[in-house]
């Protein structure tokens, strides 16, 4: 799974910096973007193995982008990472392969990424 290409979408630049540092160290290739358009562009280029997606992306909902991604490629794993646990009640979020609540401890996110990549292979 090391060497997999991960796309992180989060409107918080700080989180993107954190994800870059943490996941690069684990051997992943990390792509980051703070916007929906940036995510579309990266996905259009191809080669992304998994997307980690925030739900509140400024004015745009990450759930809309999730639906868009799954409509184009239902096999591409998407992990939702958000500060608010109750988005799980929104059935749109059920399309995601994993749902984690953001924490200073990245272990849960890392485990979810590994699990989803394992299933995808």
């Amino acid at each position: 799974m090391n060497g997999s290409r991960l796309l992180f979408v989060d409107d918080e630049e700080g989180f993107l910096e954190l994800y870059r540092a943490a996941f690069n160290r684990d051997g992943y290739t990390v792509e980051t973007t703070a916007t929906v358009d940036g995510a579309r562009e990266c996905l259009a280029q191809g080669g992304v193995d998994l997307v980690v997606l925030d739900i509140r992306l400024g004015e745009v909902s990450g759930l809309a982008l999730l639906r868009e991604i799954k409509a184009k490629d239902s096999r591409l794993p998407v992990v939702l990472a958000t500060a608010y646990a109750r988005y799980q009640d929104d059935f749109s979020s059920w399309l995601a392969d994993a749902y984690i609540v953001k924490s200073s401890d990245l272990n849960e996110l890392k485990q979810a990424v590994r699990r989803c990549l394992g299933k995808a292979r």
Partner: peptide, 26 residues
């Protein structure tokens, strides 16, 4: 309010804590 608090309060704390852990780890 809960959504806003989660976004405005929990996010920065998780970020600061995550970076601190990362700096300690590597």
């Amino acid at each position: 309010t809960a959504r806003t608090l989660a976004h405005d309060l929990k996010n920065p704390l998780a970020l600061a804590g995550g970076l601190a852990r990362e700096l300690m780890a590597a």
